Amino acid sequence: MAYILPPLPYAYEALEPYIDSQTMHLHHDKHHQTYVNNANAALESLSAEIQAFSPSTLIQNLDKVPADKLTAIRNNAGGHVNHTLFWELLKIGTELKGELKAAIEKDFGSVETFKEKFATAAATRFGSGWAWLVLQNGKLAVVSTANQDSPLMGEKYAGVSGTPVLALDVWEHAYYLKYQNRRADYINAFWNVVNWDKVAELYATAKK
């Protein structure tokens, strides 16, 4: 079954002034759609078993993908999975609290230390990629990946592993219209649009 672009779960301007409407239109309607289109094109010649995988299951089973299609699947199914999660992680007005906040304080020492580590991972990712908060072996950790790799792909492909609970896209297309080359400003603005309720939900699910 062909993958489809999920609708944005809010209005394009819902994240203003931190992420602008024009960027959201371009990022969701053009960039994410292209990942979906390219993933579907790469899947056309693959086995029925692989075609039946959900996007997240597919990127967790890259060893089953033929070598000549691996890069296309890794990049484009990875981009589809990463962006589908990213849209859900954005919302103005939520609060870090409860079990998630306690876990962050336990595993990082403080919320501020966590934010510093996450911001550093995002700022120092050379070129394009992502910063992540993941659950690894029952503990929260900050990691980063290149391009459209995901921790779900595991060490072999992404160089890291874990279940994502928070993600930040640091490809230039995610911020360049508003922030130009000021990635650090975009990262700082991100904390105003984190959907902590969704992060808490993902954390609770990952712990099960």
Rank of each mutant, 00 (worst) to 15 (best):
Q51C: 08
P55F: 09
I59S: 06
I59G: 00
Q60S: 13
L62N: 02
L62P: 05
D63V: 07
D63F: 05
K64S: 04
K64A: 02
K64M: 08
A67C: 01
D68S: 13
L70I: 01
L70D: 00
T71W: 02
T71L: 05
A72Y: 01
R74K: 14
N75C: 03
G78H: 01
G79A: 15
H80M: 10
H80T: 12
V81C: 04
T84S: 14
L85W: 14
E88P: 01
E88Q: 14
L89M: 09
L90P: 01
K91R: 13
G93I: 12
K97T: 14
K97F: 00
G98C: 13
E99T: 15
E99R: 15
K101G: 07
A102L: 09
A103P: 02
I104M: 04
E105W: 00
D107A: 03
F108I: 11
F108K: 09
F108Q: 07
G109R: 06
G109E: 06
V111R: 07
T113G: 00
K115Y: 04
E116Y: 05
K117W: 06
K117A: 15
K117Y: 05
F118Y: 12
A119I: 04
T120P: 01
A122H: 07
A122K: 01
R125H: 11
G127M: 11
W130G: 08
W132I: 04
L133H: 09
V134C: 02
V134N: 04
N137Q: 15
N137C: 07
G138N: 06
K139D: 05
K139T: 09
K139M: 07
L140W: 01
A141V: 00
V143D: 06
V143R: 04
S144L: 03
T145D: 09
A146D: 10
A146Y: 03
N147C: 11
D149G: 06
D149F: 10
S150C: 02
S150N: 15
E155Y: 13
K156H: 09
Y157H: 10
Y157I: 02
A158I: 08
A158D: 10
G159S: 12
G159Q: 09
V160M: 09
T163L: 05
P164V: 11
L168E: 03
L168I: 08
L168R: 00
D169S: 12
V170K: 00
H173F: 12
Y175P: 04
Y176R: 13
Y176V: 15
K178N: 13
Q180G: 04
R182Y: 10
A184C: 02
I187V: 12
I187G: 13
